[in-house]
Simulated scan of single mutants.
Amino acid sequence: MRFMIIVKATKDSEAGVMPSETLLTEMGRFNEELANAGVMLAGEGLQPSSKGKRVTFSGNTRTVTDGPFPETKELIAGFWLWRCRSMEEAVEWVKRCPNPAVDGKDGEIEIRQIFEAEDFGAEFTPELREQEERIRAQIADKK
């Protein structure tokens, strides 16, 4: 099973406050543990929403809004993609994670399972499966 581990933004991370050397060291150590265990597939930190854009869809109309997005309560500061045997294993790994909050106070991480092809049922036709496999192979070739 694959999981997206979502690190929630804080006021400090949204203000562009960079993590301390201590936090970077702890996260580096944690990422090494994940990689050595074969759990980590990818992981990155994100710039504050002030440097982002949001595209809103309404029918065929697209509206682009510049960040920051202060009306949004929950923004994302970073993510990992992990492969775990179960949600319980992913939870156990997250519990071992250093507190991701830049200020060391209140941090929050959300765990979401990623859909696999078999989750979509009959609507995911053999042609769509073949297309998905081609796209994944194309992406893998570019690494």
Rank of each mutant, 00 (worst) to 15 (best):
M1F: 03
M1K: 10
M4T: 12
M4C: 06
M4A: 10
I6E: 05
A9S: 15
T10A: 04
T10H: 05
K11D: 15
S13M: 02
E14A: 03
E14P: 05
A15Q: 13
G16K: 08
E21Q: 14
T25Y: 01
T25G: 14
T25Q: 14
E26A: 14
M27G: 01
M27Y: 07
M27V: 14
R29V: 11
F30A: 03
F30R: 04
N31G: 08
E32C: 03
L34T: 08
N36S: 14
A37H: 10
G38A: 08
V39T: 11
L41N: 05
L41C: 08
A42K: 09
A42G: 15
A42I: 03
L46S: 03
P48T: 06
S50H: 08
S50G: 07
S50P: 01
K51A: 13
K51I: 01
G52W: 04
K53T: 12
K53P: 00
K53M: 12
R54A: 12
R54M: 14
V55C: 10
S58R: 15
G59D: 13
R62W: 10
T63V: 15
V64N: 11
T65G: 02
G67P: 07
P68F: 02
F69V: 05
F69C: 06
P70D: 11
E71F: 01
E71H: 09
E71W: 00
E71I: 03
K73R: 14
L75M: 09
G78W: 02
W82T: 11
R83Q: 15
R85F: 01
R85H: 12
S86A: 10
E88I: 04
E89Q: 15
E92L: 05
C97M: 15
N99W: 09
A101V: 06
A101G: 08
D103A: 09
K105G: 12
D106S: 11
D106C: 00
D106A: 11
E108R: 12
E108H: 12
I109D: 07
E110Y: 05
I111E: 07
I111V: 13
I111W: 05
R112F: 05
R112P: 07
Q113I: 04
Q113P: 11
I114P: 00
E116A: 09
A117W: 01
E118W: 01
E118F: 01
D119M: 00
G121Y: 05
G121Q: 07
E123A: 12
E123H: 07
T125R: 04
P126H: 09
E127K: 12
L128N: 10
R129T: 05
E130H: 13
Q131C: 06
A140Q: 13
D141A: 15
K142A: 13
K142Y: 06
